[in-house]
């Protein structure tokens, strides 16, 4: 059996374990969750350590001493593992947050404010532009909480609410579709002809195991609807 097929079978097994949470919290779903967290934690640590080694430690060893600052900041992050030294880890976090914030704000005005405002300055020559302008203005006006709900503003507020509800509906529909796609992505691999038999066998085993657990009350039955 080659490693690719073995990976598909293992993937199928842990997917069934993860999805078994849908019929109630159980040892198998917990096992797969913890397995995933453990593997991902280890992988992230190893990848980041490799990056620190190649991008900071190696340059220092080659005489580029400016990277000593980066290495020290990196080591300081680990001080949070000991409560007495926790305060030390706040400095690299502050540097990271400060640099990130500064870099983001630098172009946010253009990218997220002026660009978006420009996009709503449209000629009123078609229905799409009209909807865009009315939707933007009324939805923004909906969040004026200091105005009284009377006179023309009442209608502006109600129109804004309709646009917001429509936007929420679109987002909800897209989110549901995304969840389908996640399941389908797994099913495509789990139902491959060379893996399907293993998947069905595992489904049966899991169903029997969980059924036995629930019947003997060794696993608490899910009480939700």
């Amino acid at each position: 059996m080659d490693s690719f097929l073995l990976g598909l079978i293992a993937g199928s097994f842990v997917s069934i374990g993860a999805y078994s949470v849908l019929i109630g919290d159980n040892p198998l779903s917990k096992f797969t969750e913890n397995l995933y967290m453990g593997i991902l934690g280890g992988f992230i640590f190893a990848t980041n350590w490799n990056y620190v080694r190649t991008s900071a430690i190696n340059p220092v060893l080659q005489g580029n001493y400016i990277f000593v600052v980066a290495v020290i900041l990196c080591v300081m992050l680990f001080s949070r593992l000991k409560i007495e030294w926790l305060w030390l880890s706040r400095y690299p976090v502050a540097v990271t947050v400060g640099a990130g914030l500064g870099l983001a704000i630098r172009t946010s005005v253009m990218a997220d404010f002026l660009g978006q405002i420009n996009a709503t300055v449209l000629p009123l020559n078609n229905i799409n532009n009209l909807v865009m302008i009315v939707g933007t203005v009324t939805a923004a006006a909906y969040f004026i909480f200091t105005a009284q709900m009377e006179g023309p503003y009442k209608y502006v507020n109600q129109t804004g609410r309709i646009f917001l509800l429509a936007a929420f509906g679109v987002t909800y529909g897209q989110t549901v579709s995304f969840r389908f796609e996640l399941v389908i992505g797994r099913l495509v691999d789990m139902l491959r002809p060379e893996v399907a038999l293993y998947t069905y066998a595992m489904l049966l085993l899991v169903a029997l195991g969980l059924g036995y657990g629930y019947y003997t009350k060794k696993i608490k039955w899910y009480s939700g609807r």
């Binding site: 978006q116 996009a119 936007a167 987002t171 897209q174 989110t175 796609e181």
Partner: peptide
């Protein structure tokens, strides 16, 4: 992006970014 994020990013298309 994934389907659920499309509405978040369409304003960037409308603005030409």
């Amino acid at each position: 992006c994934t389907t659920n994020e499309v509405p978040n990013y369409t304003p960037y298309i409308n603005s030409g970014q």
